[in-house]
Computed example of a mutant assay.
Amino acid sequence: MVFDVKKYLLNKPEAVEAFPFGPEVAVYKVRDKIFALIGMENNEVRINLKCDPAEAEQLRMVFDAVLPGYHMNKKHWNTVIINGSIPDSEVKRMIDNSYALIVKKLGKSAAQLLLK
């Protein structure tokens, strides 16, 4: 992994890291709404990200390292295996998209403030 995923997540406006499920799963929230979860499985970093349902399906077809969201609503969440097979720019785009989808649900004023 060329870029630091956790650092990238925490650089999002008002993003916070929590461990409500124990020390093995980091949860990233904006205003108490989850936009990402990170865990390890088989010595690989895996990140769950929210996604538009149609795009979620497309990403799963394009990338072997994109799976239906583990322990999440599989229609709206993907699990992305960070193993170098997906370009960093694409992983960042997926993170940005997940964050934006959650922020937009917070309301228009929050979206205007957080999605500058």
Rank of each mutant, 00 (worst) to 15 (best):
Val16Pro: 00
Phe3Leu: 12
Val91Asp: 04
Ala15Cys: 05
Pro13Trp: 08
Tyr28Asn: 08
Phe3Val: 13
Lys6Arg: 15
Lys33Met: 07
Cys51Thr: 06
Leu101Ala: 05
Asn42Arg: 11
Ala65Asp: 10
Lys104Asp: 02
Arg60His: 12
Tyr99Ala: 01
Ser89Val: 08
Phe19Leu: 14
Lys74Ala: 03
Val16Tyr: 01
Tyr28Pro: 10
Leu114Ser: 05
Gly107Cys: 09
Gly39Ala: 06
Gly69Gln: 05
His71Asp: 08
Lys75Gly: 00
Asn48Cys: 14
Met72Gln: 06
Lys75Tyr: 00
Asp52Pro: 06
Val62Trp: 04
Ile47Arg: 04
Leu59Ile: 07
Gly84Thr: 08
Gly69Met: 11
Tyr8Ser: 05
Thr79Gly: 01
Val91Lys: 05
Tyr8Cys: 06
His76Pro: 00
Lys50Phe: 03
Met61Cys: 11
Glu57Val: 15
Lys50Gln: 13
Ile81Gly: 02
Ala36Asp: 01
Ala111His: 10
Tyr28Gly: 06
Trp77Pro: 03
Asn97Lys: 09
Lys75Ser: 09
Glu90Met: 13
Met72Tyr: 08
Lys7Asn: 13
Lys7Arg: 13
Leu106Tyr: 06
Arg46Ala: 11
Asp52Ser: 09
Ala15Met: 09
Leu106Glu: 02
Ile34Asp: 00
Asp88Asn: 15
Val2Gly: 13
Ile47Trp: 05
Asp32Cys: 03
Tyr8Gln: 09
Leu113Lys: 15
Ile102Thr: 08
Phe21Lys: 06
Val103Thr: 01
Glu14Leu: 10
Lys74Met: 03
Pro23Trp: 00
Gly39Asp: 07
Glu55Asn: 12
Gln58Ala: 14
Val27Gly: 06
Ser109Met: 12
Asp64Asn: 13
Phe3Pro: 01
Ile86Leu: 10
Glu17Asp: 03
Leu67Ala: 07
Ala110Ile: 08
Asn48Gln: 12
Leu59Ser: 05
Val45Gly: 00
Asn43Ala: 11
His71Met: 07
Lys116Arg: 13
Leu113Gln: 15
Lys50Trp: 08
Asp4Asn: 15
Asp96Lys: 04
Ala36Arg: 02
Ser98Glu: 02
Lys12Phe: 06
Lys105Ala: 09
Arg93Met: 08
Leu101Met: 12
Val30Ser: 06
Glu41Lys: 14
Arg60Trp: 11
Leu101Cys: 03
Glu44Met: 13
Val80Lys: 01
Arg60Ile: 13
Ala18Arg: 11
Ser85Asn: 13
Ile47Ser: 04
Ala36Lys: 02
Phe35Ile: 02
Ser85Phe: 08
Leu49Trp: 02
Met61Ala: 15
Phe63Arg: 11
Ser85Val: 06
Gly39Thr: 07
Val16Asp: 03
Tyr70Ala: 08
Lys33Pro: 01
Leu113Cys: 05
Gly39Glu: 04
Pro20Met: 04
Met40Pro: 00
